[in-house]
Amino acid sequence: MRQLTEAPDHIAHHEHPRKGFFTDTSICIGCKACEVACKEWNRNPHDSAFELLESSYDNTGSLGADTWRHVAFVEQSGQQIEQARESGRALVSLGMPGIGPPASRPSSAAPGIVPSDTASSDTTPPDTPEFRWLMSSDVCKHCTNAGCLDVCPTGALFRTEFGTVVVQDDVCNGCGTCVAGCPFGVIERRSDGIVAPKTERDFTPGEQAATRNVGVAQKCTLCYDRMVDDQTPACAQACPTTSIKYGDREEMVATARQRVAELQTQGMSEARLYGANDFDGVGGTGSVFLLLDEPEVYGLPPDPRVPTADLPQMFKRAGIAAAGMLAATAVAFVAGGRR
């Protein structure tokens, strides 16, 4: 489909490759360092009622104005694992680009049931375990075609020179249009709607300060302020196992593809990428994920689509309709004029 709706070469005086994340959930240890490092860096308020969310070890719930990294936990039985392996094999057989083991991988045990285009390598799964625990750190996707950016009326949301999408909290007027525009439900306005006062510290021990940016739309900035200084985003730097990787998007996607191939060779056919496909509904994302099951299992939309995708066609149709109306009016005027 389309590249960035902002022509990459319009940025005259900066020459930066597009930056992004690759989150490899197969090595995530669910520690939530990313959640804390992000809050610390961005001085986000804590946003909890301090109650169990009833979702395994996940007490954060979802991304929002105050939480820009969220770790999901999914406990699964052997049956669900087998289903994931099936759906993964189906993806491979559809010939999706970038998925499938390279021919150079050595094969191990006897070949399993695989479609012909991957018959060159072994994809027999190891014994399906009886249980597994999926852990995955979610973040703003920094979409190629970003719904929030498309609909923002004030220019608060903009595309940085790194290809990321950032809210300028001094410009945002809190209209909330972007909230509806995000197909992932990531961006929200910061409110103080819960009972417990949220605290934001101004670095003085023993003191609480007021929450800042109340009412304004907030989301992950991919640590724009760190990036301009050539630093790594807080979450990526903290992640103990490099489940969160950061770098040039091109490199991230290449690494992701390699990793999926590696896992597929080991028989883990459930491994798949999310956001790496430039032809998906948002044009591919700046934050690419390696998942071990369907996106819905992780709370991610399976087929996200930017709401403005149909905009050109809508305008075209509206234009045709308007032209038609004009024509009809003109005809009516001309034809029905003399009586």
């Binding site: 959640e35 804390v36 946003d47 909890s48 009622a49 109650e51 070890y57 954060t60 605290t199």
Partner: peptide
């Protein structure tokens, strides 16, 4: 610490 407490708020 609120940041840590909100991650695991209740004894279980």
């Amino acid at each position: 610490l609120p940041y840590l407490s909100e991650l695991q708020p209740e004894m279980f």
